[in-house]
Amino acid sequence: MTSLGSDDEATTRWVEPPPAHTTTWTGIRDPVVLILVLAGIFDWLSGNPIHSILLFAAAGSLLWVALRGTPEEADRPASDRIDRADRRSRRGLVPVAVVAAALFSIVVGAFGRYSWPATIAVLVPGAFALWFAWRHAAPFAPGVDFAAEPQKLASRGVLAWIGLFVALGLFELANLLLQPSFKTDSYIHPTLSVMTDPILASHAGRSVVLFVWLALGWFLVER
């Protein structure tokens, strides 16, 4: 059942929830849960318990919702209920957000890598973004008609992107395995992380990368 309002009204859309047993089975088979669990296991084996706890927590939350049989709201962004006028007015916050992100990057960039202050500074916006992703979707998404049915994407085109990222992931994994050990970098077979080390060695470099990381998060939250 679908109900659409006018452009200036809150747009609301409902999707009939699937039967509970279907939702549970779908949730357990969800590739996102599997990917998060596998990534968490390998991160744990690599000696990064905080990283893997995050990944396990995200997977566990999705699984918990699936096992409870709560409708997953498939194909229905939570932002459907966000008023479009409100969405427009909130775009005015962009300059404020840019300044705040720049200040955050400069301050946090002064912290040493792998220090507790840097860890907490990354975890705070990260936790907020995860909570936001759980509860809402894009409040600002420019040019996206949330009332419309999900856009059908050509499978060939999607496969091109998937193929690229899978190939990059495998190449990164190959370089990781060609290192003397998981914790010893290789000059001949550098991973992306190793290549960014010289940039992240300076305050300015860390600040720029932090700003790019925040911008990427903003881009994703807007989807």
Binding site: E72, A74, T119, V122, A133, T196
Partner: peptide, 29 residues
């Protein structure tokens, strides 16, 4: 592609978890 992925809760949470992981990987313990 990301807009399509993030139309579901698991897609949104999965992608954002990946983003947080990226930040942790480069900066955090």
């Amino acid at each position: 592609v990301f807009t399509r992925i993030m139309r579901t809760r698991s897609g949104r949470v999965g992608v954002m978890a990946g983003w947080v992981w990226l930040g942790l990987h480069f900066f955090a313990r």
